[in-house]
């Protein structure tokens, strides 16, 4: 059994809209080892959620479809796999936690029943065994009095509890890969920290690999070993979290980190922002997609698309990367 659990290569996703075909994800490549953690960062609409849905074969049909690339999970190709085989994988080998736990749980069933349903379907457990398993999972995700909480409806739980119930549902079959799509965005900050801590703890206990999708760089710093930064459907930088934060290479990453709120020695006169706005997906620049907003772009950036290239400890798609000695324009 190889170390690599998931290998995504040149994955491209297109959406058919009224205005024509839009490419939401452009030749994205990344991988994740067994039991590892990977953060995918980017702003709204950069393709991070679409990438995760494509991995699970859950793109909204018929509008969205994978137009190229491959996704190898545990040695098997997922793209083009038939629906019934995919269904067997979903929930048992790969599962997902969603952003808004209230809408992600069915309001007419108790949480116990929803967790047990997954266990019964994939593990073939009896009703009572599935219930025991659900209670055990609720305890594992840190819900107090799980044997009573199991009979509660989603509306009776707090936001943090609901998200824990969601996590219990996602992990009840001990999947190899958990995709968490903005799992803490809808929660308040203290609850966020607890839920993240819980995900990390369970990830270690179960040896589950986690892909954490977020727009919060702080969340990635706390929980992920590796990180990718996406912009306009492309990966612009891929590195170990430590390197990404210490020596950001891509100009976009660099600006994102500068814009992160933190305690500074001198008060700011104005908030750091990245000038300009994200281009519309049907009007993407032909060269580097960040070029129009970049202070360091040259003529080459507008003509040619930069590819991910190795630069010391990082992979970066930039012609004039930051923190490079030879580069005269040191930052």
């Amino acid at each position: 059994m190889s170390e690599r659990l998931l290998e995504v290569e040149d994955l491209s996703v297109e959406f058919a809209t009224e205005g024509g075909v839009i490419r939401a994800v452009e030749e994205v490549s990344f991988g994740i080892d067994r039991g590892a953690t990977l953060g995918i960062v980017g702003e709204s609409g950069c393709g991070k959620s679409v990438t995760s849905l494509a991995l699970m074969g859950l793109l909204p049909r018929p509008a969205g479809r994978v137009v190229g690339g491959s996704v190898r999970f545990d040695g098997a190709e997922l793209i083009g796999l038939d629906e019934s085989r995919l269904r067997k994988l979903r929930g048992s080998e790969i599962s997902m936690v969603f952003q808004e736990p209230l809408t992600a749980l069915n309001p007419v069933y108790t949480i116990g029943r929803q967790i047990a349903e997954v266990a019964r379907r994939h593990l073939g457990l009896s009703r009572s065994r599935a219930r025991e398993r659900a209670i055990e999972m609720l305890a594992r995700v840190g819900i107090p009095l799980p044997d009573r909480r199991i009979d509660e409806y989603p509306h009776e739980l707090s936001g943090g509890m609901r998200q824990r119930a969601m996590i219990a549902m996602a992990l009840v079959c001990r999947p190899k890969l958990l995709i968490a799509d903005e799992p803490t965005t809808a929660l308040d900050v203290t609850t966020q920290a607890q839920v993240l801590e819980q995900i990390v703890t369970l990830q270690r206990e179960f040896g589950t690999a986690v892909i954490l999708i977020t727009h919060d760089l702080g969340v990635v710093a706390e929980t992920c070993r590796d990180a990718l930064v996406m912009y306009c459907g492309e990966i612009v930088e891929r590195a170990a979290t430590e390197h990404l934060f210490n020596t950001p290479r891509h100009r976009y990453t660099q600006r994102l980190l500068e814009a992160m709120p933190r305690i500074r020695s001198r008060p700011l006169t104005s908030l750091p922002v990245i000038p300009g706005s994200v281009p519309e997906p049907d009007r993407l620049p032909s060269g580097c997609r960040f070029a129009p907003r970049c202070a360091h772009s040259g003529s080459r950036c507008e003509l040619e698309r930069p590819r991910l290239q190795r630069l010391e400890d990082s992979d970066v798609a930039c012609f004039y990367p930051a923190n490079v000695e030879a580069d005269g324009a040191a930052t």
Binding site: R90, G91, S95, M96, F98, N106, V118, A170
Partner: peptide, 23 residues
């Protein structure tokens, strides 16, 4: 999202309609 969640745990379409939407 709970319908998407039901799909993400591997339920088939008829079951999603009957057990998760119709109720």
């Amino acid at each position: 999202e709970f319908v998407e969640a039901a799909r993400s745990v591997g339920l088939a379409t008829p079951r999603i309609i009957a057990r998760h939407i119709v109720p």
